[in-house]
Computed example of a mutant assay.
Amino acid sequence: MAVVLGNVALRFIPVSFSEAIGATTPAWTAVIAFLLLNTIESAVVYATLLPVILGIVMAVGGEPSFHVVGLFAAFASTACRALKSVLQGVLLSTDEDRMDALNLLHWMSIVAVIVLLPTALLLEPGLAADLQKESYVFHAGLLFNSMLAYFVNLTNFLVTRHTSALTLQVLGNAKGVLMVIISIALFHNEVSVIGMLGYAIAVFGVATYAYAKQTTKPSAR
């Protein structure tokens, strides 16, 4: 659902806007970890999430390419991604039946195929014929994209296992900044001054969070 909703969002809003909304994932992750696992971060860590949220609110308010469907799809995708990270953290850290990164990726891949294959056949019955019409460049790009997705998931699991789900999402915001820059350079989508200021504030929140996590530890309720 995180991937599907993220793709839906990209049909209506530019990559830079989608990445800006995705920067709120740490806040979603902190809330979900609190509700499901009773994990309580220090007050300082929670406070560092406020600039991230404020920056995204400013970015949304100053976004010229605003679209309601894209906005809700992006936020729903972000919430699903946060929930996924928390659940992955549980599977990778539970002492009784801890999984390693490759094992988790293996089982997730099987579930993904079971869910997506019949869905694709139902919604896109002519998919195989359409793919045959595409050039070798398209197929090469599709294969390369799949390989990148594999390594992204694998490294995400490794980071989650050795740190935490919340740290993974905050580090992901650094990627978001790069995505915004590349998006603007490639697609030339308009970004307002307020939007850029919002991105900058969000980045500041990421930096302060990283410092706070180094000096504090979460506790259980």
Rank of each mutant, 00 (worst) to 15 (best):
V152A: 03
W107R: 11
V68C: 08
A2D: 12
I21L: 14
V3H: 11
A101N: 03
A23I: 03
R11H: 12
M179G: 00
V44R: 10
L83V: 08
A2N: 15
G6P: 08
T208K: 07
A174H: 00
L121S: 11
S192P: 05
V90Y: 11
Q132D: 12
V52K: 05
H67S: 10
K175C: 00
A33V: 04
L158I: 09
Y136A: 14
A140L: 15
T25I: 10
S42H: 05
Q169E: 13
A202D: 08
L166W: 02
V170N: 01
V52N: 06
Q132C: 10
L92F: 09
A174G: 08
M58C: 07
G89K: 12
A165G: 14
G198I: 04
L148F: 08
S85Y: 09
F66A: 05
L142G: 09
L37N: 12
L121W: 15
V177N: 05
M1S: 14
S77I: 03
L131G: 04
A120Y: 12
E41V: 00
T167R: 08
A74R: 08
A149M: 06
L71P: 04
V31Y: 02
T155F: 13
V90D: 14
T208D: 05
F75C: 06
T48I: 00
Y211T: 02
I182A: 14
S93P: 02
F17E: 13
K217S: 12
L10T: 10
S109E: 07
A47T: 01
R161G: 12
I201E: 08
G126W: 09
I181T: 07
K175Q: 12
T155C: 05
R81V: 01
A220C: 03
T48R: 00
L92I: 03
R161Y: 01
A112H: 04
V52D: 02
T155N: 08
P14G: 05
A210D: 01
F204Q: 05
V193S: 10
N103E: 15
G176Y: 04
V170W: 02
G55W: 09
A210M: 14
F151M: 04
A120I: 09
F151C: 03
E124I: 04
A59N: 03
V8I: 15
P51E: 07
L148P: 01
S146Q: 13
T25E: 11
H139A: 12
L49C: 02
V60W: 10
T163Q: 07
A212W: 02
F204P: 00
S183Y: 06
H162Y: 11
V152C: 00
V60G: 04
T24L: 11
T163R: 07
A212Y: 01
N173A: 03
L127T: 04
H162A: 07
A74M: 11
H139L: 14
S164W: 01
A185L: 12
V31P: 01
T29H: 02
A9Q: 05
A207L: 15
Q214M: 10
M108F: 05
I194F: 06
N153A: 04
W28Y: 15
V115E: 14
A33K: 05
T155H: 06
V68T: 15
V191W: 11
C80G: 04
V60P: 06
E41I: 00
N145M: 13
K84E: 14
Y211C: 01
F187Y: 14
L154I: 00
A140Y: 09
K84N: 13
